[in-house]
Simulated assay, not measured.
Amino acid sequence: MGSFKGHVLPGTLFLMVGVWHIWSSVFRYVSNPKSFEVRVWNPVPGFDGKLKYFELYVVAIGAFIDLCIELLYSTHLKFFVNGVLNPSHLNDFEHSGMLLMFLLLGAIALLSEKTSFLSLPQGALCLIAAAAFIAEYLLFYFHSTTHKGLEGYYHLVLVLLIGLCILTTVAGAFLPNSFPVDLCSGIAITLQGLWFYQTAFTLYGPMMPDGCRLTGNAIYCHPTDSEVRGELIANFQLFSLVLGVLVAVVGSYGFAASRYGNSDLGSTHSVQDG
């Protein structure tokens, strides 16, 4: 079982990275479609290059802070009980493992970009990012906390969105010049962040469906029809988020093309239409 803050914090990190990835992908493509390449991270312009690696710092520092919360604060440093791993905090240990992977992703990317000791191409970084998403996928799929009922349904949707992140990230390693792949990666990360928020507000906030309630560490729905209605509401919420993100992507592409579009963009579209 999680908490409101436990879903909002990672949701904020994924949402920030996802939205920035979408805009950067669109901007880079409309600016120079012929030299477009898939990127795991995107530099922040301006301020004399001081914020260039801001996205990587958000990933690394955000994962580190969340890791400290899960591993140190939530467990109260009670790692072992009677010589074995504390069974009351297995979910915290699992979350820590997932966060460690994203911390390593941010740290490796920073080392690759800022030093000469570890210079990795974007394809390799794509596979490292995919490994982090795979760790997250396995965590939620084989969670020690048994998710049932309405809570299980929300986490099933989350697992599917994480799977989409894996597919688009791996595809980026094999299709390094594909704009649709890079854009879909940003969309998948954004949707994952939004779904973390949706889960927080529905299961632990004011959007709990009628007939369902949070009691202790579980969500109970009575009568059974309330759980079915809650799942249907979840489907509608997911559809609304997907539609909203797609509208935002189309709007951002139109804005970027009109303001920053390269002359090669029109010829690229003409060739594709032909």
Rank of each mutant, 00 (worst) to 15 (best):
I166D: 13
H155V: 15
I22N: 03
A107K: 02
H21R: 10
S185R: 15
L127A: 05
N235A: 08
D210W: 13
V157G: 10
H76Q: 10
V44M: 12
G186N: 04
L104G: 04
G216W: 08
T268K: 13
L194F: 11
L164S: 13
Q122W: 05
G18M: 08
T202F: 09
G6K: 06
S270F: 04
F27W: 12
L241T: 12
A171N: 11
L99F: 03
L183W: 07
V58F: 11
A200K: 01
S267V: 10
V81W: 01
E151R: 11
Y53P: 08
G266M: 10
E94V: 08
L238R: 04
G266T: 11
C221K: 09
G46I: 03
H21M: 10
L191T: 05
E151M: 14
C184H: 15
V271K: 15
P33T: 02
V19F: 05
L72P: 00
W20E: 07
Q192S: 13
Q122I: 03
P206E: 00
V170I: 13
I61H: 00
L99V: 06
V250W: 01
D48C: 15
H76F: 03
L191P: 05
F196V: 00
V19Q: 02
G2P: 01
L99K: 02
Y154K: 02
Q192Y: 12
V26R: 08
F64H: 02
V159D: 09
F236H: 14
V181M: 14
T268D: 11
D210P: 13
